[in-house]
Design a protein around this nucleic acid. Structure first.
Lengths: 225, 225
DNA sequence: TCAAAAGTGTTAAGTTTACACCCATGA
DNA sequence: TCATGGGTGTAAACTTAACACTTTTGA
């Protein structure tokens, strides 16, 4: 019976992570300037190999944690990339994931150790292998998902102003939005709660800080931006 | 340098195909009643293993062709499924794909040889392993995609009536649609062309046969149902 | 006092939905 | 002649988009 399996070849299975961050109106990716072979000196996504004792999803979480120190991060699978020569060194099948992290909140020592940098998504350098395709697809999927599920909050601090939120969605869609229409839509969502805190860093007048209430959202999940 | 790879384990990588067909107002999947081990006697998706000399996408095409004899079929990747024990026999990472085929148009001998049957998607039997999750996700993705890309035509014969088309979309979304609104939308799409042929099999009066013009669509790709 | 971001409603345009009857034909 | 599916337009409801001024405050 297990001849059924044995007549088939086995493959290295890798993970590649498209790590999105948001700061000052700009979306960035956390990319490695590789100080190791293969492709030393070139830019790539953070990656790793799936190990025996872990699921593919768990491998993706591990790889993200290795770079950022973060846990319980929003991640979605982008897909499997399986061209024969996608990695010129060896045949490797890679499963790409994207992650959304709060850019204030990662382990800077680890990132430094990996020689990783935040790079504006609109000014990406050339990336190795098929990483450009992975990024492109991840971006498209993230954009789609962001329009009907409240995943954007993973990119923001716990408390945020409506201006920050709008600027995030403007960055995701790459187009400006009408302030009044935007705020109307947001204020209709009961699970986006105004706190009594004020942010004074963004303006003299100060802006109300809001919070996304996950629990309230799950009770009445309706989101559309 | 290739120690970089060698310290990592390798895995069997499989393909599983969710094959959609449409007939008489119903969507069906082509499923195998397995007459081979493992899980002999149980229902499963058509599958196979990725081989050395082929990309993952090519493996998916090959697996589909092995069962149906068909070539150049609309296929999309559903994703990688990588739980450790998803296949109780051995660790296998599987990449699922869905395919849309014209149900009139496959190799019946091959299908018979594989002991495969068309099963109404709303009356699926228990499937092995994680195939139910694959089907569920494929269904969701197909439904989404069908709403903004004209993929449904792959499920129909080259010439089709508007009633057939409507009944296809009703089956995809699982809800009835208004005939006049549906036809209005379709007739606004210049790339859905009326032919001078009449289908008399569906009614006494006969219904005009239409054709999807791929080339015309690519010139002005706007589709929304 | 003024620059800079926060905050706030209304109207027009566009889209979506609801809805009912006549037509052509073969049995 | 009648049962069956094919074919057609309009109005109301709803959603989306466009648009400009006042407020607050620290420098």
């Amino acid at each position: 019976m297990s001849n059924y399996y044995r007549s088939n070849p086995k493959f290295y299975v890798a993970i590649d992570c498209i790590i999105f961050g948001f700061n000052a109106g700009e979306i960035s990716l956390l990319l490695l300037k590789r100080n190791f072979e293969p492709a030393m000196g070139e830019w790539s996504l953070m990656g790793g190999f799936v190990q025996e004792g872990e699921s593919v999803d768990d491998a993706a979480k591990r790889v993200l944690t290795e770079l950022t120190g973060l846990d319980k991060v929003y991640m979605e699978q982008v897909g499997a990339f399986g061209e024969i020569d996608r990695d010129p060194g060896e045949r490797v099948i890679s499963v790409a994931y994207y992650a959304l992290i709060n850019i204030n909140n990662y382990d800077r020592t680890l990132v430094q150790k990996h020689n990783a940098y935040w790079i504006n998504i609109n000014q990406l350098p050339d990336l190795i292998f098929d990483h450009p395709q992975m990024v492109e697809l991840a971006r498209k999927l993230m954009q789609q998902k962001a329009s009907y599920e409240p995943i954007g909050f993973s990119l923001l601090p716990e408390l945020f102003t409506l201006s920050q939120l709008q600027s995030l969605y403007e960055a995701i869609y790459g187009e400006p939005m009408d302030k009044r229409n935007f705020r109307k839509r947001i204020l209709d969502m009961a699970y986006i709660e105004k706190t009594d805190k004020i942010d004074k860093t963004g303006s003299k007048r100060g802006a109300a800080l809001y919070r996304f209430n996950e629990k309230a959202y799950r009770k009445a999940p309706n989101f559309k931006i």
